[in-house]
């Protein structure tokens, strides 16, 4: 009886651990590149102001992540960068303010980066999808802070359907986190109105492991 319980426990643990990884053909470390010449990879940001909510996007995304699909949680590492120049908010004057020295200081710091340190609270959500929290170093305007983002990643093996987007296996990633502007020394005045201290950031990107 004891052996049966122990065997079931081991089986349960094995299934649980495996469920937090991707069951795919690719073996060993895979590198997924997020540079998208088509400009469909996108980071969006939003902020509430007393007068109106501000919404913006950035499509100048580059960088890559590497991981072993059989051991995603322990092997994930990488860095994503977003070009400040590619940020748009729908108002040209506001975009200029956003890129100015008082704000993101494009001239001094042309990219906003997120470097992955590790993941936690990893859970399976379907065959090739995992959810969890990714911890990393977020650099904005020359200031680097530890940030935890909620994410979900979906791994699709190369097929006729995936080739329409890009060659190779694809990794779709959505992640969201909040950034406190005060942490990065930003004066939060834009075109005469106050921007909320907290900015919500959403990553909506696809990477390919094609070489």
């Amino acid at each position: 009886m004891k052996h049966t319980v122990a065997a079931l426990l081991v089986l349960f643990l094995a299934i649980t651990i495996n469920a937090q990884n991707f069951s795919v053909k690719a073996k060993g470390e895979q590198k997924f590149n997020f540079a998208d010449p088509g400009g469909r990879n996108q980071v969006s940001f939003s902020s509430e102001t007393p007068l109106e909510d501000i919404f913006g996007t950035a499509n100048g995304i580059s960088g890559s992540v590497t991981f072993d699909p059989a051991n995603f949680g322990k092997t994930l590492k990488g860095k994503l960068s977003v070009s400040v120049k590619s940020m748009q908010t729908g108002i040209s004057l506001r975009d200029e303010h956003l890129r100015s020295a008082n704000w993101l200081n494009e001239a001094g710091f042309p990219e906003v980066t997120f470097e992955i340190n590790g993941v936690s609270e990893l859970k399976a959500d379907g065959a090739n999808k995992v959810k969890g929290k990714v911890n990393g170093k977020f650099s904005l305007r020359g200031v680097t802070k530890d940030i935890t983002a909620e994410f979900e990643a979906t791994y699709l093996e190369e097929s006729e359907m995936t080739q329409k987007r890009a060659p190779g296996d694809l990794l779709g990633v959505r992640a969201e986190f909040d950034v406190n502007l005060n942490d990065f020394g930003i004066q939060n005045d834009v075109v005469g109105t106050k921007v909320a201290k907290m900015i919500e950031i959403d990553f909506n990107v696809v990477g390919s492991n094609a070489k």
């Binding site: 996108q42 979900e152 979906t154 699709l156 359907m161 987007r165 779709g172 959505r174 959403d202 696809v206």
Partner: peptide, 12 residues
Amino acid sequence: DIEKALGLAPTK
């Protein structure tokens, strides 16, 4: 279809 399969949000 591919974006749905990848769990992405609509691009703006």
